[in-house]
Design a protein around this nucleic acid. Sequence first.
RNA 1: GGAAGGGUGUCCGAGUGGUCGAUGGAAACGGUCUUGAAAACCGUCGUGCCGGCAACGGUACCGUGGGUUCGAAUCCCACCCCUUCCGCCA
Length: 431
Amino acid sequence: MLDIQFIRDNPELVAEKSKQKGYEVDVTQLLGFDTERRELLQQADDLRRQRNELNDASQGQKPSEEQVEQGRQLRDQLGDLEHRLEAIEKEFDVLLKAVPNMPLEDVPVGASEDENVVAKTVGEQPHFDFQPKNHAEIAEAKGWLDKERAAKIAGSRFAYLKGDLVRLQLAIMNWVVQTLGDEQVIQKLIDESGLQLSAKAFNPVLPPAMLRTEPYVASARLNAEEVTYKLEQDDLWLNASAEHTLCTMYWNEILPESELPIRYLGYSTSFRREAGTYGKDTEGFLRMHQFDKLEMEVFSTGETGLDEHKLLIAIQEYLVQQLDLPYQLLQKCTADIGKPNARGVDINCWLPGQNTYRETHTADYMTDYQARDLKIRVKRENGTELVHTNDATAFALGRAMIAIIENYQTADGHVRIPTVLQPFMNGQTEI
RNA sequence: GGAAGGGUGUCCGAGUGGUCGAUGGAAACGGUCUUGAAAACCGUCGUGCCGGCAACGGUACCGUGGGUUCGAAUCCCACCCCUUCCGCCA
């Protein structure tokens, strides 16, 4: 959630920026509840003070009948007040949580994802002397993809991925874990981007794939209707990204400053209901209920949060460039960055089989918005502060493979292996 | 699934109705001593909220939620989680 003090100090700004993100927020009403809440809180604190004074006065002895009677009155008054306070706080909380994070200055204002701004286009789209196929055709011909049997077993938007495709996925994973574990690579990207950051490597993590309601809600990432699967019997949700179990990892913790930045590279199978997408992207495995993903997550101080965000983007670009995939970097507009995010970019890779750029990566900077609810703080010299959180896709493996298959396809239906991946494929140059 | 034990501050750990936000230890920080360090000694040392320019004052927080009481870390109820043993199992 957003800092209530900030909302008090900047009511018009909050209303305006919320609107830019597509959220109707009644700031006036919120602040009305805030005032009322504070008044009641004062009164309640005062009654509690009186109660405490009364208790102290008894000095461990049995209180007099008069004191007991006084206590009864205080108790009843306080009970009344607490009742009213509870009602107000409930309304207040709902409104406060409805306020989205404020977009940073350089986030373009836009009403839908159509107004995302192409910041740059990198790489040459490959030329083919033949009609390029889409990944589904190639994968099915190769026996890498079986959606019919998956549908029989699990329904639509599931697949059996097989054979060399699996080897390719494992190769990408190994390569990314190695690359992000290399401080020299991190340092190089920091230097090239002109950032002031530690070169600390990314620690690989296999997180749980499920999480409970309470931390999930606190992460501001639970999107139950459209996205997330619920296991009713167990108060557990299947994570829609490793990010969800990574950002919640330090829930309710105070971290020593010396540990920051904390950089994780999480691997998890991700589950999405994809409600409301019927008939969309039905071919191949672009949009699945289940896919594997490597996700970067960073906890940092406020000062370095934005630079960490930029580092994550630099890493994304580096990884995509290493695979020699043509891509566009999109600066997401206010309507598309998402409620808890202050800034976000997408990387869309070129897919020749579809003759278009499709989203393969996203990088989100939450400032302290997410940490406020998750209560993740850092102990510093002058007190504790909320950490800043960042997340970013390293590779959504399904979509990465789609990009490779389509860009690296040959006339006779094979797929060449990008040079950097060959060492992780036993030197194979083609599958 | 069955049984038992437990959840207290950054960590460990005491506390079973009132002067307890909480003994003690560790870590951390500042200082004394020392050529320097260690040790020893002295001091500081939780978080949120409300008010205040601030110093500070008030209040809440002992797994969570309810209850009993003038008063709850402490008693009662429900739930959650952790540990150990048994069972089952990759």
